[in-house]
Amino acid sequence: MSTEWPLWEIFIRGQHGLSHRHVGSLHAPDAEMAIRNARDVYTRRNEGVSIWVVKSADITASSPDEKGPLFEPSNAKIYRHPSFFDIPDEVENM
């Protein structure tokens, strides 16, 4: 058995209405302590109203090798980008 605590990815929601955002990672023996550690490490300056923790090992990531096939095709399809609209200043989080 490994004596190292597993790594957790921490997501914090800054205010109501926004999504949780990835803020970093930390070590903890289980989910409950990961939440506490996240509270102490990442919300010291009143950054959040909600915390999610996910075991890093449970995240499946896309492979950097497949970057071309995965992402480049959408580059050329400008009609998918809504860049022809003016966004009013009042819409802050888009």
């Binding site: 605590w5 930390l26 070590h27 903890a28 506490r36 550690n37 102490d40 490490v41 010291r44």
Partner: peptide
């Protein structure tokens, strides 16, 4: 004993 604990204790 761990960075996370260090910060928690300092808090």
């Amino acid at each position: 004993p761990a960075l996370e604990e260090d910060i928690a204790l300092a808090n």
